[in-house]
Design a protein around this nucleic acid. Structure first.
Length: 105
DNA sequence: ACTTTGACTTGCA
DNA sequence: ATGCAAGCCAAAG
């Protein structure tokens, strides 16, 4: 995989840089990397991440736009939701309370 | 080198 | 509020 020192590593660091109890959206992460429309690419990175063993990347802190929990093949959204909730993240129905934990301040 | 796909986003109906 | 379509980026085949 050429994902070791490419754009992926950057995504991992960005996600790793997300403080505990805080969540970020794919678009947000992509923007940090300088890729405004690279949301998909970010998803790609995280997906590969799972294949790599997740390392210490809190992928569960990465959600879709508006705080929606994206689906992942194999893992249900409940797991992610539960993990976030364990970090003190509040949920508004099926969405994360971005107004509180969203990195969109 | 080219084509297809993918954990997305935004807009319109 | 829900559903469908188009767009953009990067990686895998």
């Amino acid at each position: 995989m050429t994902t070791d020192d490419g754009f992926f590593a950057r995504v991992y660091e960005a996600v790793r840089g997300i403080p505990r109890g805080r969540v970020a959206t794919y678009g947000q992460v992509a923007r940090w990397l300088g890729v405004a429309r690279g949301a998909r690419a970010v998803g790609w990175a995280l997906r590969a991440l799972d294949a790599q063993g997740s390392r210490r990347v809190p992928w569960h802190r990465v959600v879709g736009a508006g705080g929606r929990i994206s689906l992942r093949a194999g893992v249900g959204p409940q797991l992610q939701r539960r993990r976030l909730r364990a970090e003190g993240v509040r949920f508004a129905g099926e969405r994360v309370d971005l107004g509180r934990h969203g990195c969109r301040a």
